[in-house]
């Protein structure tokens, strides 16, 4: 409890500044990991637009560059919507060593 702020240090009126959730590492929830295959990817952005967690990384020009594992919860939607099967879902256990 000691790391939590006391009442005098909290903003009034229940307010919270915008976007503070960006510190929350929801990637820890993941049991299956999407692995992106750059060679197969046609950059159609279907994974990018369908990801509920905005975890597909892309350049401003619209090129997919990978997966944001800090946030990705491993739902597999990206793999399911990929027309080229360029994303494979693999168990997190395979990546423990890394």
């Amino acid at each position: 409890m000691s790391s939590l702020k006391g009442w005098k240090d909290l903003p009034l009126a229940t307010t919270v500044p915008a976007s503070t959730s960006e510190k929350v590492q929801t990637g820890q929830w993941r049991s299956m990991r999407p692995v992106w295959n750059e060679e197969e990817c046609i950059h159609c952005l279907q994974c990018w637009i369908q990801c509920p967690d905005k975890s597909i990384k892309a350049t401003p020009e619209g090129k997919v560059t990978g997966i944001d594992y800090f946030f990705c919860k491993g739902c597999g939607t990206c793999a399911a919507v990929c027309p080229k099967k360029a994303i494979e879902m693999r168990p997190e256990s395979e990546f423990i060593e890394q």
Binding site: P11, A13, T14, T15, V16, P17, A18
Partner: peptide, 9 residues
Amino acid sequence: NPVAYGSLA
């Protein structure tokens, strides 16, 4: 200066 009112606390 966006804020959220009404969090789940």
